[in-house]
Every structure is written in structure tokens, then in C-alpha cells.
Design a protein around this nucleic acid. Structure first.
Lengths: 114, 114
DNA sequence: GGCTGGTAGATGGTATGGCCAACTAGTTGA
DNA sequence: TCAACTAGTTGGCCATACCATCTACCAGCC
């Protein structure tokens, strides 16, 4: 391929560094959630077409950073689910990230309009 | 180091895929510009602390994609400057990118507030 | 019992692109 | 001659979203 524009969906680039905040926000909104459910609510709603291979590593990173806690729940219908909850640190990180994002988005939008 | 949060400045992640649009917008605003000037106007204004190693490759990519044209200008004060101009394709890409960005930023902001 | 299909989670490799550091070169002034 | 500033270039690093693939559990069906 030698087409000039690789076209690599800009949106997937834009998600970088924001996806974790989106996940934190979804957890804050829903109280708790398991990966597969998040996957579908995020994909059906605002942010299009996320796949498991994208979301699960995010949850893993968030747990490594102590921003979420997880808990296996077995015995329901289907395979066991791993439910995630925000920690206090996660809530703080979400607030901070929200502020940073709105600031950045404003500056960027202004830069694009000039 | 074992601190949980690697702290890798979120903003630098957010710039991914948006910086090229910011550069296109700056060129559209100023008519033409050379790299070092762009560097300073972008850094002084909205988007903080950009370095040469970040901006010059962007200009190179934009030229490879046919979105900008460049022209060396020698004989002024100081080293030769390479001036960049938007092409028609660049203007179209800017419009398209602007629309995509505002849409994404809106959806993202809504997702963060929920 | 075996099949199939949907649910749930995990993993590895790839490619993108901003970052830093170092480098070359031209001009100006001491 | 030397230093400082301007201007552009290059190479390697690293985080992270993407894709494809894999395991495993359960339900319904024959």
C-alpha cells in the first residue's frame, strides 16, 4: 500500500489516554460493573466499537494503579464475572482527569477555530 | 521506582492525533509559517511546551500526505527557513478533522459527566 | 453423553506517534 | 575565535489502542 493517508481512524488515536478516564467515569456512574458489560455499554453508547482486547488491559492497569478494586463473582448464569469498583484514589483521579480533559478540550477547540 | 502511577503526562497522550490538526489550523490562521515560528506560537499559546523533535516530524508527515507544501527561503537574517502552506487537500482535511474533533470532544465530555 | 452458541476474561504481537537528547549549520556580536 | 541564538533534522524510547486468538464456563438441544 502506498496511499498517502493511512487513515488509521483518528478516533482510535484520540481515545489514547482518555479511555481510562471513560472507564473510571462509567464505573462512577454505575457503581460497579464487570468488563464485558462495560464493553457493551461503552460500545453501544458514545465511544464506538471497543473490543475486549482493548478494555480488559485498561481495567488491569487501573487496578495496578490502585484506582479500582475487583472481586470475582461466581454462581450466576454463565461464566464467573469480575466486578470492578472505584477506590477513593480512583474517584480522585477521575475528578482530576475530568478537570484536565475539559481544560485541554477547550484549549484544543479554541486552537482549531483560532 | 514502584510508585503506582507512572504519571506519564496525560496531555502528551491527548495530543496524539490532534497535534497535526493543530498545526494545520495554525497554518490556516497564519497563511504560512516556518517550523521554528510555529513551535513558538504553539508553545507560547494554548499547547504547552512543544519541542522541535515533536513539531518537525509532524510537518514532514503532513507534507508526505500532501496536506501542506513547503518552500525554502534563504537570504533573510539567520539560517534558511522552510515555509509551509496549506494545500487544498490540507484545507479539506482540516475541516473534516475539526468536525470529527468537536464531535468526539462532545461525546467524551458527556461520557465523563454522565 | 456430545454439540453448538453465547458469555466472560486474558494474552501477544503490531503500529502509531509524542517525547527527549543530540546533532548540524548559518548568522550575529564580542 | 568564540559564544549564543536561530533553524532544522534524526534516532531511539515508551505508552497504548488495535487485532486476532485462546481459554473456559454455562445452557439448550438432539
Amino acid at each position: 500500500m502506498s496511499l498517502p493517508a493511512p487513515r488509521a481512524d483518528r478516533e482510535s488515536q484520540w481515545l489514547k489516554g482518555v479511555l481510562d478516564l471513560a472507564v473510571l467515569a462509567a464505573l462512577a456512574r454505575e457503581g460497579s460493573a464487570y468488563g464485558y458489560g462495560l464493553l457493551r455499554s461503552l460500545a453501544d453508547a458514545e465511544l464506538g466499537g471497543l473490543k475486549g482486547g482493548t478494555v480488559y488491559p485498561v481495567l488491569g492497569r487501573l487496578e495496578d494503579e490502585g484506582l479500582v478494586r475487583s472481586e470475582w463473582v461466581t454462581g450466576g448464569a454463565g461464566p464467573p464475572r469480575r466486578y470492578f469498583f472505584l477506590t477513593a484514589g480512583g474517584r480522585a483521579a477521575l475528578d482530576e482527569g475530568r478537570a484536565g480533559w475539559t481544560s485541554f478540550a477547550d484549549r484544543m477547540t479554541r486552537a482549531l477555530e483560532g
